[in-house]
Simulated scan of single mutants.
Amino acid sequence: MTLLPALAGRLGLPGLLLALAACAEPPPELPVNTRLGGDFTLTDHRGEPFQLADQRGRVVLMFFGYTHCPDICPATLARVSQVYRNLKEAGDAERVQPLFITFDPRRDTPEHLSEYVPWFKANVIGLTGDEEQIRAVAEQYGVVYLQSADDGSGYDFTHSDYVYLLDQQGRVRKLYPSDFDIDEVIHDVQSLL
């Protein structure tokens, strides 16, 4: 008697299909992006120094934006927050850290960020610094942003809007567009835990 008919006889067709699925190749690991990333030091929304290296052992979801953004930034942070809350329900949030890095340090002071990030109810750490520090971090991660002229009523930014997934060693593993699929991100985060 060959193996498959013998297993089918013992397990039935549904059992055989489950057994075969268990033998299938595991999904491929998320690749490490070696062109983007690196450690940095900025100031958090409490006014304390923040170093990415201090997050080792945690998976990081990182987004660059600004608090006066009328649409993309708050919507993207809301989606990141939903990922965090879903991970919290699954018991995985203690090893995940959402980060929001502003490229508008003039308005996004630690005091302002400390009022802004709690609205998302996801343990988001807001980060700022001087313009040179922020420009350097943006370059490390391939972030593009351009400030509009201040016409007296304020200014805006045109910017890239990717969310970065960093593994527990701080390496970039995946970039998501701002309208990412929440379930996909949850799955990817859990694959790195």
Rank of each mutant, 00 (worst) to 15 (best):
L11D: 03
S114K: 08
Q51F: 00
H68R: 14
G9V: 01
E115T: 09
Q168G: 13
F103S: 07
G57D: 11
Y176I: 03
P118R: 10
Y141E: 06
Y176L: 01
F100I: 07
P118A: 10
I125T: 14
D54P: 00
P98L: 10
L193Q: 14
R35D: 07
C23F: 03
T41M: 10
Q190D: 03
I182E: 12
G170K: 06
H112D: 08
G65C: 08
D150L: 09
A22I: 00
T34V: 12
S153K: 13
F63Y: 14
L52I: 07
D44I: 09
S160Q: 00
S114M: 02
K88Q: 14
R46V: 01
A138F: 07
F50T: 12
P26C: 08
H45T: 13
L99Y: 06
Y141P: 12
K121P: 02
D104G: 01
L17M: 15
T76D: 15
V83P: 04
P110F: 13
A75S: 15
G152F: 05
T67P: 04
D92H: 14
P5E: 09
Y141T: 02
P105T: 02
K121R: 15
F64V: 11
L16E: 04
Q147H: 01
L42G: 02
F100S: 06
L166K: 02
N33Y: 04
Y84Q: 01
E25Y: 00
I134K: 02
S81K: 02
Q133P: 08
D54E: 08
Q51L: 00
D161H: 11
I72N: 08
T34Q: 14
A24E: 11
G142V: 02
V80P: 01
E48I: 00
L42M: 08
T109V: 08
L127W: 12
S148Q: 08
R173N: 05
Q55N: 11
T34R: 15
K88Y: 00
E111T: 13
R106E: 15
V163E: 10
S148W: 08
Y155T: 12
L16N: 10
P49C: 07
F180S: 10
T102L: 07
T41V: 14
E89F: 03
N86I: 05
R85C: 08
A21V: 02
Q82S: 11
S191T: 13
R79H: 12
L4H: 01
R46D: 11
